Structures are given as structure tokens and as C-alpha cells.
Simulated scan of single mutants.
Amino acid sequence: MINTKDILETIKMIEEEHLDIRTITMGISLRDLAADDINVLADKIYDKVTRRAEKLVATGEQIERELGIPIINKRISVTPIAMVGATSSANSYVPLAKALDRAADTTGVNFVGGFSALVQKGFAKGDEILINSIPEAMAETNLVCSSVNVA
């Protein structure tokens, strides 16, 4: 049962201590996507991300209104692109980063994570291609986050 003291403490945290929800994240699996042509794969990624996350920002804003607590970031996280890109014959995954960037812009999220490689147990061809694509991908996108897990 909620008591008055708890309610007042929460109000104080919101008003005086600027309580917020730092981030809400929608995880989207891209493991079911494959294409030999990198541009076809990019289109599939854009379509799936925008379809799945089309209501993420609106839902976050509704939660903000209901709770009276701001949500600072609304983000999307996808399957590591090194795994998805490996289904193609491409030697650069920059088109996939651009597709993620367009999807983030279309859905209105603050950023999208997953332009990533998981190499803690060794490199596969897709991991190497992704790592080599990072500088150009980061230079040509605004809302894409990249990472390489090495340990």
C-alpha cells in the first residue's frame, strides 16, 4: 500500500532533485534478415526498424505524461550489424549504418545502437568488415552508435 510519505518523497525527488528516467530502449532482432546485396539488406533493416519502432517515441511521451517524469532518451538497439552484414557479399557496412540512421530519424529516437561487432572470442569476416567501416559510418551518420566488444 502506498503511503503519503512515499508520495511526498517522490514529488520531492522530481521537483527538487530532478528525477528522470535516463533512457528507454527498444531491442529489435535483425537475425531474420539476410541478403547478398548490401542495398537490399539496408532496405530490409530500415523497413523492419521503422515498422517495429514507429510508436516508441509516442509511447515514451505518453509514459512521461502519465508519470510526470521526463524520459531523457528514447533509443533503439539492434542485433550487432557485423552478424547481419555477414549475410551479404559487401566489403563495407556503411550502407547499413546509413539505413539505421534514416530509421532513427524517421522514428524520432535520440539514437540507435548496434553498429557493433562482438569479437571477444575471435574475429569473423563480418566483424572485420564492420570494424573497417566504423570511421566512415560514424562520419556519415548522426544518430548511430558503434561499439566493438573485445572482452
Rank of each mutant, 00 (worst) to 15 (best):
D36A: 15
V40R: 09
S92G: 02
V150K: 03
K12L: 06
P135D: 07
K44N: 12
K74C: 02
L41V: 05
T50C: 08
Q120H: 11
L41G: 04
G27W: 15
S77L: 11
A35R: 01
E17N: 06
G122W: 12
E136C: 00
A104V: 05
L100K: 05
S146R: 04
R22F: 09
V112L: 11
R102T: 02
D37Y: 04
D127N: 13
Y46Q: 04
L56F: 10
A103F: 04
I72E: 14
I21T: 05
I24F: 15
A53Y: 03
I76Q: 06
D32K: 12
A90S: 12
V49D: 02
F115Y: 14
N3C: 12
I69D: 03
A103W: 03
E16F: 05
P95L: 11
V84Y: 01
G114V: 01
A82K: 04
I38Y: 07
I131E: 00
S146K: 07
I72S: 09
K121H: 08
I129D: 04
T141C: 14
L130Q: 09
Y46E: 06
V57T: 09
T10C: 08
T87V: 05
N142M: 09
L67F: 14
I134C: 04
R51G: 10
D6P: 00
G60S: 13
E54W: 08
L8M: 12
T141W: 06
P80W: 01
A99I: 04
E136Y: 00
T10N: 10
T87E: 11
V119I: 15
S29Q: 14
I134Q: 08
F111H: 13
S88L: 11
G60D: 05
S116I: 03
M26V: 09
D43T: 14
K98V: 08
L41T: 02
R65Y: 11
R75I: 15
D36F: 11
S29C: 13
Y46R: 09
V40W: 00
A104F: 03
V112H: 00
D47W: 02
V148G: 02
M83I: 10
K125Y: 10
E136A: 13
V109P: 01
G126Q: 02
L33Y: 01
I81Q: 07
N91Y: 12
P135E: 00
D43W: 01
L100C: 04
G85R: 07
N3K: 12
G85D: 06
E16L: 10
S89K: 14
E140R: 11
L33C: 01
R22E: 10
K12D: 15
A42C: 00
T23S: 14
D36C: 02
